[in-house]
Design a protein around this nucleic acid. Structure first.
Length: 572
RNA sequence: GUCCCCGUAGCUCAGUUGGAUAGAGCGUUUGUCUCCGGAACAAAAGGCCGUGCGUUCAAAUCGCAUCGGGGAUACCA
């Protein structure tokens, strides 16, 4: 917000000075405090265009800028940077605005109501959600929340591959388990079958209800029944896990239903009409290499069945038909070879392939006791999303997953996640929120200081450097959210909250909020920390993490308290 | 072979899309409590931003090359 205002006044300066302008300069917060509140490179960027020396240009712009009432000081440094120091009153004014906005702070119209479709998780309906899904759920849901906050109209969608080969295997696996439960000897459990314990439990339940009846049905009906049963139970399981994780979907799309609507035939004929299919080796191929893929792909196999690509393409066409401005797919790293053919088909069918964005989440390594935990799907030895949430809690899991860039591998340290102590960043942040609540409560109960409605004059008593720094951080929040939404990089919000919490803890250690001798300053400070609390709460909510007013005391925390003094006394 | 991602402090990672002296947390070392909750704070040590060349006023950031790590390359889904 401030950046925009400054950019405008700089543009005005350039106009009054009659200089050529290519609008390529930027305004930013310098990482060195001695360089002012904001800094711009205009003079350097425009020097060539105007055939002038950067520092000379800077001098002229400086004189113009000083006419602005909000600008207190302008300095020229280095090769031609213009460093701007703003008046404290401006920050105080903006703090007052944050207090008035309350929970709506950061809500903007930036996205202009553009429609966004986020597809994520879309795990196979053949078993419980695992930690890969947990990362995808965290990413998709957090991005969804942030995008809606800044004025986009985003929707969350889950695509269920409830048709095809794997589902047949699922039904067969369940039948084997059912026979096993009933005491039949089925021999070795097949390698390609699903080995997870959940199918045994499902078989148990099924047996006690309708086991006899089921096995008397003709094979075809029996498999269909088992399939439906398995799909429904697993869907319930997944829904349940997601609910515990505070992730909801606006829409579930079933592949089976799509197929029944005849979209498969439709897509095949569309592609044929576009003249990009051919027959070879008894199969039907899509000449995707003409549209940027490395090689051509099979649409219909020699045995007459279709490849998974066809219904998936059909599904993506429905996304286009539903009129979204951006279509975002969140996929695992093993799918990246798949995107070129999808985009190729979209291009071939004359849709705008630029609308489709794909975000890849890299793999996750779980670490325990410094060792990588090995997982094997075949042996049914996987760590599920439920295991993880039960173990470390939703707040910690979500924060750990969102904290990293998407295209980096994620090392998840179980030991650190389990620790309810100072090493765990989640508690550090939550503690900042709880601490503020506690101070406000104390001011009210023990000192009878109530701040009531936001007061502009109270903000005038905030002049300490640390206070101005905090205000600056808070003021940057809306812009951060917009940038996070546009770059699809929610991890930056996690970094932001952590930094804000840190700034607060430092401020707290240095400056006392409550001072009965000086009620004016006390009120100003109470307003400031209220604003910090507000932003922490908004940010944590966007991350799907709780913002508690009180921390639960744990043995780990109590232990930490005694640690330092005893260390010292032992030494001496 | 081809394609994609990653190489930043001992470890795990940021780095505001090209800015000034590269930052956190953990770990290590040393400190701070008659304290508004110590799950906190202060300080020290720790770096050729994998390597080389290029682009320009300016490169951890962009381009090319190269080395190292991971992944993808089905008529599986």
């Amino acid at each position: 917000m401030i950046k925009e205002i400054l950019k405008n006044s700089i543009n005005n300066c350039i106009d009054t000075l009659n200089l050529e302008n290519n609008n390529k300069f930027n305004v930013e917060v310098p990482n060195n405090k001695n360089h002012g509140d904001y800094s711009t490179n205009v003079a350097m960027v425009l020097s060539k265009l105007n055939q002038r020396k950067p520092r000379e240009l800077a001098e002229e712009i400086k004189t113009e800028l000083l006419n602005d009432a909000h600008i207190e000081q302008v300095e020229i440094a280095g090769p031609g940077f213009i460093n701007i120091t703003l008046a404290k009153s401006l920050f105080q004014e903006l703090l007052y605005d944050i207090l008035k906005a309350k929970a709506d702070y950061g809500t903007t119209q930036h996205g202009a109501g553009k429609k966004i479709l986020l597809e994520f998780v879309s795990a196979n309906p053949t078993g419980p959600l695992n930690i890969v899904s947990a990362r995808a759920a965290t990413y998709g849901d957090t991005l969804y929340r942030i995008m809606n906050k800044v004025g986009y109209e985003a929707k969350r969608e889950f695509y269920v591959n409830d048709a095809g080969n794997q589902v047949d295997i699922l039904a067969e696996s369940l039948e084997l388990r059912l026979r096993q439960v009933r005491g039949e000897n089925i021999g070795e459990f097949p390698v390609e079958a699903y080995h997870g314990e959940y199918l045994v439990e499902m078989a148990d339940e099924l047996n006690s209800n309708e086991g006899n009846r089921l096995l008397m049905l003709p094979e075809k009906d029996r498999i269909e029944k088992l399939k439906d049963y398995a799909l429904n139970s697993i869907h319930e399981m997944q829904l349940n896990s997601l609910e515990k994780y505070d992730v909801e979907f606006d829409n579930w799309v079933s592949e089976k239903k799509l197929r029944n609507q005849g979209v498969v035939e439709e897509v095949l004929s569309f592609l044929a009409e576009a003249e990009c299919t051919y027959e070879k080796d008894d199969a039907i191929w899509f000449s995707s290499s003409k549209y940027g893929d490395d090689k051509d792909r099979v649409l219909m196999k020699a045995d007459g069945s279709i490849t998974y690509f066809v219904p998936d393409l059909a599904y993506h066409l429905t996304k286009y038909q539903r009129g979204f401005d951006y279509i975002i797919d969140v996929l695992g790293p093993d799918h990246h070879g798949y995107v070129p053919r999808l985009k190729a088909a979209i291009k071939a069918l004359k849709y705008d392939e630029e609308k489709l964005e794909v975000v890849f989440l890299q793999q996750i390594n779980l670490f325990e006791d410094g060792e990588k935990i090995k997982m094997s799907k075949r042996l049914g030895k996987i760590i599920t999303m439920d295991d993880l949430v039960d173990e470390v809690g939703k707040d910690v899991a979500r924060f750990f997953f969102i904290d990293r860039r998407t295209n980096a591998h994620l090392n998840f340290d179980m030991d650190l996640a389990r620790k309810q102590s100072d090493e765990n960043p989640v508690y550090y942040i939550q503690y900042a929120h709880a601490r503020i609540s506690s101070i406000i409560k104390k001011a009210r109960k023990e000192h009878e200081i109530r701040i009531g409605k936001p007061s502009r004059t109270a903000c005038n008593f905030l002049n300490e450097e640390a206070e101005i720094e905090l205000m600056k951080k808070l003021i940057g929040f809306p812009q951060l959210l917009e940038s996070v939404a546009d770059t699809r990089e929610p991890h930056r919000l996690a970094t932001y909250v952590f930094e804000l919490a840190g700034m607060f803890h430092k401020y707290y250690a240095k400056h006392k909020v409550i001072d009965e001798e000086n009620i004016d300053v006390t009120k100003g400070r109470l307003f400031l920390i209220t604003a910090v609390k507000n932003v922490l709460a908004i940010a944590l909510d966007l991350l799907g993490v709780n913002a508690p007013d009180r921390m639960k005391k744990t043995s780990a925390a109590k232990g930490a308290k005694k640690k330092t003094p005893t260390k010292k006394s032992k030494e001496k």
